[in-house]
């Protein structure tokens, strides 16, 4: 029986590896970056070196949204100005959250989110610049913890309060904290 032949991707010339990566979506870049240390370094090195490298270019932005959808949004400064969103959906296994195909995270806690954010910032050479809070799903104390955890990360320039005024006085207090 003949073994299937190999395509040693990491041994390709730089130009060829870069061209393949340029064709991939952020989802595939993330999956590829998780394959091995070498693949991870390759993804990051190309992103930081090239300005015309698909979703791997410089100057990308990340938004973090806290709502029922548990969402991280990546905005890419590519020719399409594409936005990609990651929804941390509850999976069938109640104790894990599905991030994307075959990729689960253990929970939607600030620690896990922080790890995700730091990983994506590094991988896509991006900045976390917008934090969406939500009064409908979180109380004042939870929102305070979110602000403390993420409000000072990266180049945060914008806070958005969604479903504001739902809790009246609490929202006013939250706005005061943000101001």
């Amino acid at each position: 029986m003949v073994a299937p032949s190999k395509f040693p991707f990491l041994h390709l010339p730089h130009l060829a590896r870069n061209e393949v990566l340029r064709q991939l979506t952020p989802f595939e870049i993330i999956i590829l970056s998780l394959c091995s240390k070498s693949a991870n370094k390759l993804c990051k090195s190309i992103q930081k070196r090239e300005t015309n490298s698909g979703c791997c270019g410089n100057g990308n932005d990340i938004e973090l949204k806290f709502s029922s959808r548990n969402e991280i949004t990546l905005k890419f400064r590519d020719p399409r100005l594409t936005t990609w969103s990651f929804y941390f959906d509850d999976s069938i296994i109640s104790s894990s959250f599905k991030v994307m195909k075959d990729l689960h995270t253990s929970s939607w806690t600030p620690k896990v989110i922080e790890r995700w954010i730091l990983y994506l910032l590094d991988l896509f050479n991006a900045s976390l610049n917008k934090l969406h809070l939500n009064s409908q799903y979180f109380g004042i104390e939870e929102n305070k913890r979110i602000i403390n955890a993420f409000g000072t990360k990266g180049s945060m320039t914008t806070f958005a309060l969604e479903n504001g005024n739902v809790k009246g006085k609490e929202d006013e207090e939250l706005i005061q904290i943000l101001i």
Binding site: V20, Q23, E28, C35, A39, D102
Partner: peptide, 25 residues
């Protein structure tokens, strides 16, 4: 390169390792 990208698209990390001959480290 596009053919190779198409073979990666939609694959899990384990499948990509197989397609691109990336050794797990």
């Amino acid at each position: 390169c596009r053919i190779m990208a198409s073979r990666i698209t939609g694959k899990s990390a384990e499948q990509i390792r197989t397609v691109l001959n990336i050794k797990t480290d």
